[in-house]
Design a protein around this nucleic acid. Structure first.
Lengths: 337, 337
DNA sequence: GGTTAGCACTTAGACATGACGAGTGCTAAC
DNA sequence: GTTAGCACTCGTCATGTCTAAGTGCTAACC
């Protein structure tokens, strides 16, 4: 029993099953792929694959379907990269280049990716770490309430209402604003936590309290909110393939709606700097996604933010991986310097 | 055959069907509701109701289920307002009061509403019309690119990148900014289109071109983007009741994802200033929602923005309507002056 | 040793059959 | 206008049978 042929059989099973959604038997296999051996031989190979836990039979006399482990092996060792068609590349390029706003870019990206893959696409807001403070604005909403706006040189704008704990005049606030702005303009957002105390210390003691509150607010602005958000598209694709989620797509929709779940999942996926990462079925930490796979990769500076696709474990991995990788590349290029 | 009893029968059918999801027969009806007449009489009434197109029988020997028209009559004439429980009222109040940001308020609102009704909740961003310009900021991203930020007194922040068509120095831009700001601060956003030309005219001729571009940008900021967006929650509830969408929930998800469809639907729903509006099944202009109903109402200034709930036609209208109305009221109060 | 052919065995799924029950419509009596 | 009674219609469920697909195993083959 040759080891290479066994892998070839696994590959054929995965491909056929992904294509037909039906358990694939030994006979159909030798017909569709010219393996050069008889169905009986394939049966032996299949029995071996089943012993290794790579495939399984839904019932005694049905064909085999891949297990999570089988998909894993397929993805890791067997599948070949499937380059995108010229048309697809062009579609990516033209669609993404027409956008201006960051929101706009991300929105177009998910739509594109979900159409390309016929799955659910998600993209995380890019991390701010390398961005620098371009501008800071404080607006007095009420005597004690200040709207703080932080504008980064990447064109990203963050806002938050802050209760400063003491009454401030417009003039006082303007003074604070110029002090903050002078000290912090050009500071990388990642260094804000270190830089803020000095600014607070330089303020007049009578306004120290308000300055403290504002500093805390800015700190939070830099680190939280947006990068903890994501955009999503293509949930309707889940319903189309509802055969693939026997238990109903409810839990999957719940996971998608609980953005926290998705974000943790994306950030926990092993960092493979060279390519896309795949999380298959029960490998997912969240139970609702036991029948789903996530294909994701990083983009942007340091590949820190993630873009990816979610679909049934029975998914066309090579194509999906290619699409995710290509989209991430274009995305990096557009958002890049 | 008494007319009032016929309506009573329709009411009973709707209520039982909503509760049990099963066609309801004449016998079960007299048992569950003490109507004081025999099942045969009910049968006569039912036959009459069927003739009028208010109920229908899925097959010869099954009970009856309401038609869209039947639901319509039920909603318009029969259903009694079902006040929320004390606990629910408190839940609304505490949950919504803890929020600061507008985004935050809307997000909490949809979550709350979807939990309250076990349906999909949507809320449209409030219209800006009455908001006033609080602050304007221009940031030079590149020699010709300006990031314009418009801050309204409602705490809303809008941003956009504008190509000004000519090179600007930081100083020049600061000059434009202060000119815009001085003229426009306090202007209602709805009056921006009229106010902007005067500002442009007051600028130095050499910067007229840039000022024009900036004005166009601000105009767009005030009128577009956000109020054309909506927030949504509870899509997972669709899957739970997938029995109610025989054709699969795919088309419904598509409609929800195409925000344009939902926004048009919401805005086209007849403006009943005194209460919530209901659009039932095939009354919806969009085919994918032929088995769905939308319960919505306006909120905020002029009740111009909409908040609502989407679910199967087989839905508990009285409760849903009460929840939507209550949430809209709290929302108006919080966002109010 | 690996490969093949053949055959007995298992099982899901499709189909027919019949009993049952829920529900209707109609008619005649009240 | 209401009621009781009865014949009739269907959907559902349980049962049984048959077929096609596919396996596992054994014995022969190279």
């Amino acid at each position: 029993m040759s080891e290479p042929r066994k892998l070839e059989v696994l590959r054929a099973i995965v491909e056929d099953y992904v294509h037909s959604r039906e358990p694939v038997g030994s006979k159909a296999l030798v017909e569709r792929h010219h393996l050069g051996v008889s169905s009986a031989t394939i049966r032996n190979d299949m029995a071996a694959l089943e012993d290794e836990g790579l495939i399984t039979a839904p019932h005694t006399s049905a064909g085999r379907i891949p297990t999570d482990k089988g998909y894993r092996l397929f993805v890791d060792q067997i599948s070949a990269v499937k380059p995108l068609s010229q048309a697809e590349r062009r579609a990516i390029q033209t669609l993404l280049e027409g956008s201006e706003d960051l929101d706009d870019v991300l929105e177009r990206t998910v739509r594109l990716l979900s159409q390309l893959t016929n799955q659910v696409a998600v993209v995380q807001y890019p991390h701010l770490s390398r961005a620098m403070v371009r501008h800071i604005e404080f607006v007095l909403l009420a005597p004690r309430q200040v709207l703080a706006v932080l504008i980064a040189d990447t064109g990203k704008v963050e806002q938050r209402v802050i209760d400063v704990g003491q009454e401030l005049s417009d003039e006082a606030l303007a003074g604070l604003r110029s002090r903050f702005l002078k000290s912090l303009a050009g500071t990388p957002l990642s260094l804000l936590p270190q830089a803020l105390p000095a600014v607070v210390a330089s303020c007049e003691p009578s306004r120290r309290h308000a300055a403290q509150a504002l500093a805390r607010g800015l700190d939070a602005l830099a680190n939280s909110t947006r990068e903890e958000r994501m955009v999503m598209a293509g949930t309707a694709n889940l319903a189309r393939s509802n055969v693939d989620f026997p238990l109903s797509i409810g839990p999957v929709l719940e996971a998608l709606e609980e953005q926290v779940v998705m974000l943790r999942l994306l950030s926990e996926m092993a960092q493979d700097p060279r390519g896309v990462t795949v999380s298959i079925g029960r490998e997912n930490p969240y139970d609702g996604l036991a029948e789903a796979s996530v294909v994701a990769t990083g983009y942007g500076p340091g590949s820190s933010a993630k873009v990816g696709v979610l679909g049934p474990t029975r998914m066309d991995y090579p194509t999906t991986m290619a699409a995710v990788r290509a989209v991430a590349r274009y995305l990096s290029r557009i958002l890049g310097p």
